[in-house]
Structures are given as C-alpha cells and as structure tokens.
Amino acid sequence: MTSDPMNNPNPQSPKQQEDEFFSGYSRWPKSIKSFFFKFIPLLFVGVVLFGVIVPRVHDQFNAGKFSRGEFQGLLVGEPVPHLLVPRKGKIESGSQFSRYLLSGFSKSAPPAKVTDHIGKWVQLKGTAVHRNNLTVVATGGAEPIDAPAGAPSAPEPGIPLGKFSLNGEILDGKCYPGVMKPGQGKTHRACAIRCISGGVPAVFRSHNEQGDPLYFLLADNEGKAVNKQVLDLVADPIQIEGEVTQYGDLFVIKADPSSYQRV
C-alpha cells in the first residue's frame, strides 16, 4: 500500500519514491503530492497570464460609440435611405448637412413608417452609432414635420469627382460603426451578410494614401442600392472601379456590382 505522507514524516529514499503508486481512490503518494503542490500553482499562473493577455491579442477595439437621440432632417431615399440633418452654427465651408444613414432595429432596413416619408422633412427617434465620420441611426418610425426656419430648402447637388479604382472591403453600415467590435473582417462576414441582406446600407471602406479610412455608399449605375447583389463579396478584399460623386461629406461610388473584383 502507499504511504501517507501526513502520518509519515520520515524522508523517502529514491527507491521508495520509485515504488510509490497513484490510484485515485487511495491517498496520494508523497512524491506525487509534492509534485502537484508545485505544478498546480504553476498552472494557475498560466491561467492568469492567458486570461490577461489573450483578450489583448484580439483586434476587437474601435472607437465606435452609441448615443440615443432625436433627429430632425430631410429624408432622402437613394441610393439608400438617409437623413440630412442641418448643421448648426456658422458654416463657412463644407456641407450644410450632416448625413446619417438609416436602418431599422436588428439587421433590417428602416421600416415603411420611415420610408413612407422620403422626400419630406421628418423627426425621428433612434440610436445613432458612429465611427469616424460614418453614422447610422437605427430607428423604428418617423414623423413628418415642417421644414425648420432657416434650413436649406434642398440638399446641395452632387459633385462628380470622376472615375476611380478603389481597393477595400464591403461592410454593413451598422455593425462596423460600433454595434460590433470588430464589425469587419472574416469573423464578422456572416453577420454583415445578414445585415446587408436585411437592408442595412452596404458601405465600402477604402483608404487614402495616408491610410485614413474613406467610406463610400455603394450604388449601381442607376444610383440604386446594391445590397442583394453584393452579398457574396461582403468582407472580402475587393476592387471597385466606378464613378464617384460627392454629396456634402458623403461619397457614393456607382458601378455595376458584377464588375467588382476580388483581389
């Protein structure tokens, strides 16, 4: 039988140690017990190290934030529903409007209670998710209102910037700004496909020469949304060659989705 180290303070010879035998239902032999008194703390040091370090080797952090609020603006339908909110204060240059993309709650397009009012001034409640200069407002309905006094009567016309060939990734306009972190890349692909399929605006993220992100709304040659046509290319590295038009601080790239190339 094995010796019980608690009742046997005499040190063991190497031969005795060799003859020790572990069975789960008996008392532990002394040499195995002392081995585990060292090994288990070591295991727990490993647990602590992994627990602290592993979350830091995941690129899951971005500055996207949520804020609930009430927004008043001009509702525009194409290429995707978005809200033009007059900028407050003195605007010396740039657009008179901030442009907020619209989605429904969960992975869906804004509901008819919103899109029925396209072309009108509306007030809506929702959750704004924003990252850099990309903002989406998730909302369940909109109320028509009179145009606020002093507001611009119509959005400025688009400025054609010419033909560009851009490399980047198709993202959904809701998770990427901050609903999910990260809301891009392969692990997020399935979610982005469901979002875009459900009607959340498809956004193309490219970058300038300095590496700063640039966002483009995707539209076909007629300026319509392309959601259903781009599902298979979501989250893949792709190249789009198309006509870029600037609407204030919003860029739209028009191209036939069948011409998008994986790179």
Binding site: V47, G51, V52, V54, P55, Q60, K65
Partner: peptide, 27 residues
C-alpha cells in the same frame, strides 16, 4: 472561472465601451 473573469476584466481595461457579447464569445 478565473480565466473567464480575467479575460473580461482585461478587455475592459483597454476600452471602456467594448461590445461585451463579443468578448464573452471569445472568452
């Protein structure tokens, strides 16, 4: 339990406005 707790705690130390559901999936 220690690993799951530390994973969540360590992630929160980096950024206070993380999306915690994704953190739990990774944990």
């Amino acid at each position: 339990a220690i690993y799951l707790f530390l994973f969540t705690w360590s992630a929160q130390q980096i950024s206070p406005d993380l999306e915690m559901l994704g953190i739990q999936i990774r944990a």
